[in-house]
Amino acid sequence: MATRDEMANSFGAAAAAYEQGRPDYPVEAVAWLLEPAGAHPRIVDIGAGTGKLTRVVAELVAGAGAEGRGAEVIAVDPDAEMLGELRRSLPSIRTLIGTAEALGLPDESVDAAVLGQAWHWVDPVAGSAEIGRVLKPGGVLGLVWNIRDESVPWVARLTEIMKGSNAEQLMADGGPEVAAPFGALTARTWQWERPMTRAALSAMVHSRSYVITAEPAERERIDGEIAGLFDEIGAVGDATVSLPYVTHAFRAVKA
């Protein structure tokens, strides 16, 4: 089995699958994350990947009429392949190679820092300190995850086949932790469903770090078992099935 670091750095090998298979974030959840950031915020999306969260943040900023009045969205990720995928759909977004622990941004230069599906790869003490450095006083740190709703039997079977993730384990263990200069996290959840074709479901499976880094025999097992499951639930051809999600959002303000 691959190490944690190998999994964390594996996504660029499946950037196209990630873009196709992973969901965007509910607008309501992202708006809640950004509430403390003010009217015309400068926002950094850390671990931006292919832009799943960046896209929603940018749409919210533009929808608030803030474009051209000091608002800006910056996407940071350690993987050039992931950022390349982001730039294909979001060519106007500034991108930087970096991590939560080493952002390469000036002190007190942003109003909000958000991480989608990413904090479980971050050292919470070092990441909190670095993000705190680049946030203005009163700036907000927002963390968000889309987690499949495994109370639905076929979704639980899907997880059994493709194995759980570090993100799911973090939620099961009680959720994320942050350190100075942030206080306690405030949390909210949203439940929703995403219509998905067989191709999109397969891409989602193939975008997961466990599957990307699995040995060929293990990938073959996974592909065979998900094919059988997708047949059972009617995900055949262009037919769609609804994949239920719970979005977990957390925010804290810089002290």
Rank of each mutant, 00 (worst) to 15 (best):
A102E: 13
L103T: 07
L105Y: 15
P106A: 15
P106H: 08
E108I: 05
E108V: 14
S109V: 13
A112K: 03
A113N: 04
V114L: 09
V114R: 00
L115D: 00
Q117K: 06
W119P: 00
H120A: 10
V122N: 00
D123S: 03
P124C: 04
A126W: 01
I131Q: 00
G132A: 06
K136C: 07
P137T: 11
G139S: 14
G142Y: 00
N146T: 10
I147W: 05
R148S: 06
D149I: 09
V152W: 04
V152E: 10
P153I: 11
W154I: 10
W154C: 12
W154E: 13
A156T: 12
A156W: 06
L158T: 03
L158I: 06
L158M: 15
T159Y: 13
E160C: 10
E160G: 14
K163P: 02
N166E: 14
N166G: 15
N166Q: 15
A167N: 04
Q169N: 11
M171F: 07
A172G: 08
A172H: 08
A172Y: 06
G174Q: 13
E177F: 00
V178L: 10
F182A: 01
A184L: 09
A184E: 10
L185Q: 07
L185F: 06
T186S: 13
R188W: 10
R188H: 15
R194T: 13
T197L: 11
T197Y: 09
R198E: 15
H206K: 12
H206R: 15
S207F: 07
S207V: 07
S209R: 08
S209K: 07
S209Y: 05
V211K: 01
V211N: 02
I212D: 01
T213P: 08
E215F: 01
E215H: 04
E215Q: 08
P216W: 07
A217N: 06
E218C: 02
E218V: 15
R219L: 03
E220T: 12
E220S: 13
R221Y: 01
I222S: 08
E225T: 05
A227C: 02
L229P: 09
F230A: 04
E232K: 11
